[in-house]
Write a protein that binds this DNA or RNA. Structure first.
Lengths: 214, 214
DNA sequence: CAGTCAGTACGCAATTCTGCGTATTTATGA
DNA sequence: TCATAAATACGCAGAATTGCGTACTGACTG
């Protein structure tokens, strides 16, 4: 049985390019094409026998994120894959939260597109390494959107020190780990304290954590 | 500059197969080979100038999950990629939580391995569609896979100490706050350290926080 | 009533941390 | 090319922390 696909894409050029690549695979059947989120929902209402939607994220009337949320609300069994031009982490993340199962870059090859579709229908998710990392970090350290992190102008090395401090290491241990002298570790941490305006390890680690520096 | 790689793998057959595939790429420099987690840590202590560890998940002495956690604790800058024979979601997920950046199947091709390593060092994560989906679901509905808090038998007073420590106070300040002597504060904290099995403030606060004591 | 536990208190010795100097090298940018 | 920033390194002095003793009191418990 072929896979029933819907496409929501307002750019006719991108749309025909996409249709051409999908046409290479006889197991993919494009059942429905919409030019924006509203249009997609209207058409789905008449024909919801769709397995997967390829959804442009930038559309007039109703954008990809809203449309994804609505599609998943009404037809939870339909998978949504986001189509995007670039690797816009913020927007993609919103879409994933809205229920998208993954995404494709518009310049991806026919093979990649096909792979992504089959992976998705098999219950998996498709994402780039960068998105995957972002996702893992979110699990390890759930976001709290309350206060926006301050920038204290810490250098890379100084942040390394904070990471080590957070793990409860002594100056001596940090020095050994990083192959630098005890004195250098101290100087870095001294600078961190000044920049964060604190006077001991715990306050430094707390402030760094609160501001998502570590 | 070549990428400095460490391998932890107890099976000598798998090891040589892996080395052979890595050998195709001149930018990969295998600096260190260990036969289990303990061995790895010992060798890293002498040579932590390593960018990435390829870590077998099944090893004697110290398994891949524990070893990953320990490597990331001591050397946060080192990336860890898990080597596994199959797609064991549960175990891999634990490893990722322990700090692993992704994983490789042992039968992956040289190209896939190289790609995974470069993706990882570029700050991304490598994971299969199945794992990616699992991860997304965890974010959408936090099942909080976290370990059930342990009971360390702390007294009320000892928990008070931890609260004060968490705020970055010195023993002297705590004593003043609670109207007890400096010596008493010290004794309480000493007892806390023994019960939590830690040796300094930061580790105590971390452990207390992880176990929702404070 | 004897034993245990929590909380209090003190001392000694060793280790670790913190503040404030100075100074060199390397890289980057005006 | 001169200035600046980042990373490195060292010393001194004082403050804080940690480990390991001891010891007393009150409350609760078998």
């Amino acid at each position: 049985m072929p896979i029933h696909i819907a496409i929501a894409e307002d750019n006719s050029f991108a749309l025909s390019a996409l249709k051409k690549r999908l046409g290479e695979y006889p197991d993919l059947d494009i059942r429905l094409v919409a030019r924006d989120g509203k249009d997609l929902l209207k058409q789905l209402a008449r024909n919801s026998n769709i397995d997967l939607v390829l959804m442009d994220i930038e559309m007039p009337e109703m954008d990809g994120v809203q449309a994804t949320a609505e599609v998943k609300r009404r037809y939870p069994q339909i998978k949504v894959v986001i189509l995007t031009m670039f690797d816009d982490d913020e927007l993609l993340f919103k879409a994933v939260m809205a229920g998208a199962s993954g995404y494709l870059l518009k310049e991806d090859s026919a093979t990649q597109i096909h792979q992504c579709i089959t992976d998705t229908l098999a219950g998996g998710a498709a994402m780039s390494p960068a998105m995957a990392m972002k996702t893992l970090n979110l699990i390890r350290q759930p976001i709290s959107l309350d206060n926006k992190p301050q920038d204290f102008g810490l250098t890379e090395r100084e942040i390394t020190m904070l990471t080590q401090l957070k793990n409860g290491l002594t100056y001596e241990e940090i020095a050994t780990n990083l192959h630098i002298s005890y004195h250098t570790v101290r100087k870095h941490i001294e600078n961190v304290y000044r920049k964060l305006q604190v006077n001991n390890k715990i306050e430094a680690v707390n402030k760094a954590t609160d501001n998502r520096i570590v």
